[in-house]
Design a protein around this nucleic acid. Structure first.
Length: 586
RNA sequence: GUCCCCAUUGCAUAACUGGAUAAUGCAGUCCCCUCCUAAGGGAUAGCUGGCGGUUCGAGUCCGUCUGGGGACGCCA
């Protein structure tokens, strides 16, 4: 319908051109909107106001001219000029009834589209360091990222989901050292655990598993392990020097192979946990991309070589720098340290080059809001690699502040005190968790109240929407209990019996569903889907309360049943898209 | 100190990206079960941080001030 009106308006614009009212080379953007207010009809266009200036006419006069030139259409019952010069379109309600049969025909496919035209898009999200289990902070990125990916798929993009595994670098070495020290404790050694190590209990479990495999083979006397290691911070030393010393010691005492085993034990265990946590949370990936692979296969060297050739690298103070300040970044960044090790940023340059080489037309990175300072340098890297930085979209997700009632829940990864995603799911359930995460705009700070999310009452929007779905199911059960049969054909031919205000509202809402999906996808805003579902559910509950569906009049009954089954279908489509369950009973 | 983000009713958030009378849920007040689950429905009151600017039109864009959060390592 929207497209139809658009073409009608385009037609009039051309007519205005040939009348010499506006210039031939002027091509206004034709915008059609859903009217907010019922009094303003179904659709509205601001075309006259847009053209007022170039046409040198006042908007209302121009609007009249446009309306006069507008070709007629069977479905448009009335065209009005209102306010400062809006053109309002009133659509024949009978034309809208067909959405119900359309929903019945298309079923699960209703709402899907092909605007993405098979464009290759990559969505990279979560990508938390594998140094510990996922916590509730990652949950929002997981829920948001997977919803964005699912939405893009729904509108016809070819979507690839990816998790970037930071399995290299100092943090991983710290983890390996932490595992080894806990292992030594398992062997019976007594030591004071470094303040900068990973203190969570999961490290002890990994260490215990390691010991079951290798027994005491990797054991070394504690006096040797801590010999000449700089003091830890609580003892008045430097916690970084302390832990770095221990990492070095682990490498020398264990040797390459054994150190690798310890390292790998930590990585494998944690990564496996992250995978199952995400998969249980309804999040899946096509690829887990390893940072270490980039190092091992020479990708980083290759990327740096490319930057060097194009003159974007220089040496200073023994390190290699990327001249990103010439490409929009605040300052230049180190890519190879004085000690010869490449930085995390160097990996990221290589990673993005790799993404480009894989042929993605759009690259979407979903990052925590604390990484926003990172965007200019990555865009600079893309420019330097000769790519269009517009191909990269970085979506920032704000942290969620967790509450239990009025109490704020404090968290810190390093100290090991945090609520894991798994605990959250266990405490409040999968559906509320996903629903709550996605309910808010991603860049908004969010208060996440655990108490509210678990409450099974009307305060809880998840249950509200699911209940609408269950209610339709319940009506259908009642129908057969009362010995009635649904006659879909009869319902379809009697849709014009649906004249109650709630019925017309519901039908209007149903016609909007595909537009909502499209907008939510293109704007990366899944919360629009949630808002829509809440609205649809509210209208349905209102209808339910005002009217009986199972009435004696066969034609009205079947028409109403077709309507509510269509509502059920759309609720299910929306919920499934967000990977939220659609219960038949509550 | 420099830079970025945020500010909407008592609370939590919307507002089709510049459109018409700013919406929704809680909480408040009042009402509705001889009726397909009241886990529901109906009614009622209340909001764009301050000051300028851009324009036919501003919660939305620009400037400035105030108040909150974050980023500024050869960390990841």
């Amino acid at each position: 319908m929207k497209q139809k009106l658009e073409s009608l308006l385009l037609h009039t614009v051309n007519a205005l051109k040939s009348d010499g009212i506006i210039e031939h080379d002027f091509n206004p953007k034709i915008t059609i909107e859903r009217a907010r207010d019922q009094q303003h009809g179904d659709f509205a266009s601001n075309l006259a106001m847009m053209l007022a200036k170039p046409a040198k006419m006042n908007p209302r006069q121009l609007a009249e001219k446009i309306v006069a030139l507008l070709p007629s259409d069977v479905n448009v019952t009335k065209v009005e000029i209102a306010g400062p010069g809006f053109i309002n379109f009133f659509i024949d309600p009978n034309a809208q009834y067909q959405v119900i049969t359309q929903i019945h025909e298309q079923g699960e496919k209703f709402g899907l589209s092909q605007v993405g035209a098979g464009k290759k898009v990559q969505v990279e999200f979560v990508s938390a360091n594998p140094t510990g289990p996922l916590h509730v902070g990652h949950g929002r990125g997981a829920a948001y990222g997977s919803a964005v990916a699912d939405l893009l798929t729904a509108v016809g993009f070819d979507v690839q989901r990816e998790y970037y595994v930071n399995d290299a670098g100092r943090q991983m070495d710290i983890l390996a050292a932490s595992v080894w020290l806990r292992y030594l404790e398992e062997c019976g050694e007594v030591l004071s655990f470094p303040s900068n190590g990973y203190q969570g209990d999961y490290v002890r479990e990994i260490a215990a598993n390691l010991r079951r495999e290798v027994h005491n083979e990797y054991r070394h006397p504690i006096s040797l392990v801590f010999e000449d290691i700089p003091a830890d911070e609580p003892q008045g030393g430097d916690k970084d020097k302390h832990i770095d010393g221990l990492i070095q010691r682990a490498k020398t005492l264990l040797g390459d192979k054994q150190y690798r085993d310890v390292f790998q034990a930590g990585l494998n265990d944690i990564l496996a946990g992250i995978r199952t946590d995400l998969s249980d949370f309804g999040v899946d990936y096509q690829q887990w991309f390893s940072e270490r692979q980039l190092m091992d296969d020479g990708s980083i060297d290759k990327a740096l070589e490319r930057l060097r050739e194009s003159g974007h690298l220089y040496e200073k103070e023994g390190a290699t720098w990327f001249a990103s300040s010439k490409l929009g970044d605040e300052k230049d960044r180190v890519v190879v340290r004085e000690n010869g090790q490449s930085t995390y940023f160097a990996s990221d340059i290589a990673y993005h080059m790799n993404k480009l080489d894989r042929g993605f037309e759009q690259i979407i990175n979903i990052w925590g809001a604390d990484h926003h300072g990172y965007i200019p340098r990555v865009k600079a890297a893309m420019l330097a690699l000769g790519a269009d930085p517009e191909k990269l979209t970085v979506l920032l997700v704000q942290f969620a502040i967790l509450y239990r009632g009025d109490e704020q829940v404090q968290m810190s990864t390093r100290s090991g005190s945090f609520v894991t995603l798994r605990q959250l799911q266990h405490e409040i359930g999968l559906d509320p968790a996903r629903f709550y995460y996605v309910m808010r705009k991603a860049e908004q700070h969010m208060d996440f109240d655990l108490k509210l999310a678990t409450s099974k009452s009307n305060e809880n929007p998840v249950f509200y929407v699911q209940y609408a779905h269950a209610r339709v199911c319940s009506v259908l059960r009642q129908l057969s209990e009362k010995g009635f049969q649904r006659d879909i054909e009869s319902g379809n031919s009697n849709l014009d019996k649906l004249q109650e205000p709630q019925e017309l509202n519901l039908i209007k809402l149903l016609t909007q569903y595909p537009e909502v999906i499209q907008r939510a996808a293109l704007q990366y805003e899944p919360h629009l889907v949630i808002n829509y579902l809440r609205e649809l559910a509210a209208e349905f509950h209102s209808y339910y309360n005002a009217h009986q569906f199972i009435v004696d009049d066969i034609s009205v009954r079947n028409a109403r049943l077709n309507l509510i089954v269509a509502v059920k279908q759309v609720l299910a489509n929306g919920l499934k898209l967000l990977r939220i369950n659609t219960p038949e009973t509550m």
